[in-house]
Design a protein around this nucleic acid. Structure first.
Lengths: 214, 214
DNA sequence: CTTTTATGAATGAAGG
DNA sequence: CCTTCATTCATAAAAG
């Protein structure tokens, strides 16, 4: 499904000014559609995601607190289990992220090697304009790329060093899992519902929101 | 149920995109907008309403199935761990970094909107104590949040202005203008609307957007 | 198609 | 205040 989208993205400049969007919709010959800004889309997506999470948590809670199967509960479970929950992000907001082309990536890597650690403001602009010749890109993309690149490069080195030290000290055999199983011991979060902790499903405001939708 | 939705969404959105392209944007290098038909909006509305209903029913079910007041459980879930994880006796302080709950965010956003500029020291205290009723928080958290919120709001405004300037590529004479310095940052990511501040269960924009369907 | 991994982006916090 | 860093989240891409 995203294929079409990616294709279009390749050749299109995506701009989301609200006024432009609205203008396009009204100017479209005879066809009237409701237009939402990306902002609104994002809000909606988050709200729905919040609902999904709330439902998920409630179902879990319900399941763990009752041992007898409940018809009504099962039905609700089916609803919540539906792919809709996971497809919200894709289908509704169509959120998609920038992906550097091979050429861009190559240039970026080269920049990173030589200009080591200097993504100054003006530099970003220059790089962006250069990369723009090889595909869609924005300054934010470049900025993020350097941020991530530096951070991950740094962390990798740290981990490697740690592993070396460990292997020297006690001949650890876990040299293979260096990347992500690093600091897991410190803040192990066995929480099965990652973002559920941010929800307060018993807050009156949530309830009122529920009604307001209906 | 939801599959149908996906299918329809996909087809219709694509169709609309084409129409919009042909009608308005095909000549200017590709303007991409997201639109929803009335039908899609209606489906969305129903889905959200369904979630609301499901949540309500689940809450009721849960309440009726538990003898103890589950307020404590909710509070825990509101913080960082769901009741089950906590009951296992695992480390409660798993998270170092504060994350505002939806309710807190909502309050903060409201404060920020009407906020008269700099939140004074005393103001911070007040806000903090109010937000503390909805979850763990400290004055530092509030301070940082306002700082970040302001800075990022400002930056986003810059980008938006830049995009506008770029889209109205008609008057090349403004080369002497300082607009030139920031004109590199265009073609911003579709999701370059990091206004997560609007995440709240009662966001007026979403409500109005949804009501517009009715 | 489902699961895993790689990585772009968001954001709380720290430094200056 | 502005910039930078560290961590986390979400998703495109890869692997199974």
């Amino acid at each position: 499904m995203m294929m079409d989208w990616d294709k279009q993205q390749q050749q299109q400049q995506q701009q989301q000014q609200e006024e432009l969007m609205n203008g396009n919709a009204s100017g479209n010959g005879g066809m009237f559609v409701k237009v939402m800004t990306d902002e609104q889309m994002e809000i909606l997506r988050k709200q729905i995601a919040a609902y999904a999470t709330i439902c998920e948590q409630l179902v879990d809670m319900h399941k763990s607190l009752t041992s007898h199967p409940d018809l009504s509960g099962a039905r609700l479970g089916n609803l919540y289990c539906d792919p809709f929950v996971t497809s919200v992000g894709h289908k509704i907001t169509g959120r998609q992220r920038w992906t550097p082309t091979p050429v861009q990536l190559q240039i970026l890597e080269r920049m990173f090697e030589q200009g080591n650690g200097t993504p100054s403001k003006q530099k970003i602009k220059d790089i962006t304009s250069e990369l723009a010749q090889h595909g869609q890109i924005s300054e934010t993309n470049v900025y993020n790329w350097f941020q991530n690149r530096r951070a991950r490069s740094k962390r990798k080195q740290q981990v490697t060093a740690t592993n070396n030290a460990e292997s020297e000290a006690e001949t650890e055999v876990e040299s293979a899992n260096e990347k992500k199983t690093k600091s897991e011991d410190f803040q192990s979060q066995p929480n099965s519902a990652p973002r559920a902790e941010d929800l307060c499903f018993q807050n009156p405001e949530v309830s009122s929101a529920m009604h307001s939708v209906d």
